[in-house]
Write a protein that binds this DNA or RNA. Structure first.
Lengths: 216, 216
DNA sequence: GTCTATAGAACGATAGAC
DNA sequence: GTCTATCGTTCTATAGAC
């Protein structure tokens, strides 16, 4: 039972399972994604999941963790750069949201462009009702939200603490909603642009959130 | 097999099932909500669901339809009132979003205040990955989005067709995200205000979307 | 219309051979 | 580390008594 062998000799099977899980969880959510789906698509044996990950819950938690952590590190790194760049001045709100949103929409962990399955998986993870998710939200989001609220407060000193929280919550909601509702966008675009334009989407998202957050 | 008996002599059982389903689907989503959960909480027999609704899918579709249709009618009614009120002038963007968002957050179908289970259920319905949902999204949203896009275009004639669609999509995403992510708000509020203040939330949501949508 | 009882299928997990 | 085979559980759906 390898409890945390992040890189063993031959983890091709393990990587295959992770890759397929990411896509299937993004599409279907936790309950509707079965281990039989995963192992069939990954071309590995059903028992391999429990050998490598212990259980379905541990598998999905590990996949989410592996993906969110680098994104959050990148977010805080970019925020630090912005703070240094602006010296004593507060960072513009649009730049703050740029550092918060863009790492998700341009990251596939390999720097080769946006990964739709990853983007949708993050949204799914935060709207997933399963019990085992609750603790994870706090782990991933507590430090991040505190840091971002602190910087947003510097940039918008006229907003009350409570107003800041509402508007930050709405900004996160916009991001998460945008990662999940494919159907709405399809209806709106009437068949045109089946392929999603993430560059345009993330630019619109940043401008939208900045205007919504900082309005008078 | 009563296929569509909207009001038979004794539909107490039927109403009980609908009421419990609304809450459980809102909390857990389609797959995680079992008919055994529903019939236990509703204090009716397991077989009653299939007698009254035919199947689990049909049950959930009917519950969603029964709730969304009156809300959409109310939305369009308020939008018509606004158009009449402003005569030849375009309706202010904030008023348009008021008519779109407020009927969801203040409606419990009986006019006695916001219904958290209903609010969350709508969000769940639109982010639910189950196949049987796909057609419903289009049914409920196609006419509504066309009407709202038309009015928003009148109010913001300087925005291109594509920009209008992106920003309307983001506005819907904000609303849906706000109905689902309870966890985020709990983390942000640090235990204070366990009870959600929907009056404040919907006011912030309308102002946020109006500013995000109409920014230069 | 409401019940009991159960069919029939799928699931997560694991034991044990190789 | 990978496989086959299967256990025990849980689910939706339905048949049939009342």
């Amino acid at each position: 039972m390898p409890t945390s062998p992040r890189s063993t000799a031959s983890d091709k099977t393990r990587q295959q399972i992770i890759h397929v899980t990411e896509r299937l969880f993004a599409e279907k959510g936790f309950r509707a994604m079965t281990l039989r789906d995963v192992t069939r698509d990954a071309k590995v044996n059903l028992a391999a999941v429990n050998y490598h990950f212990g259980s379905k819950s541990k598998l999905i938690r590990e996949v989410i963790r592996d993906r969110i952590e680098p994104i959050n590190i990148e977010r805080l790194s970019r925020l630090d750069d912005l703070i240094e760049l602006h010296g004593a001045e507060p960072v513009p709100v649009a730049s703050i949201f740029d550092s918060l949103f863009r790492p998700l929409f341009e990251s596939d962990g390999k720097g080769t462009g946006p990964n739709p399955a990853l983007i949708q998986m993050i949204g799914r993870a935060f709207t997933e009702p399963a019990d085992f998710m609750r603790g994870m939200h706090r782990d991933f989001f507590k430090e991040l939200s505190a840091r971002y609220l602190f910087e947003l407060k510097r940039s918008c000193p006229e907003l009350s603490e409570e107003t800041l929280r509402y508007r930050f919550f709405l900004s996160i909601s916009t991001m998460l909603g945008a990662t999940i509702d494919q159907v709405i966008l399809e209806n709106l675009s009437n068949g045109k642009s089946k392929q999603r334009n993430y560059d345009r989407l993330v630019s619109e998202l940043i401008a939208y959130a900045a205007a919504g957050f900082a309005h008078s």
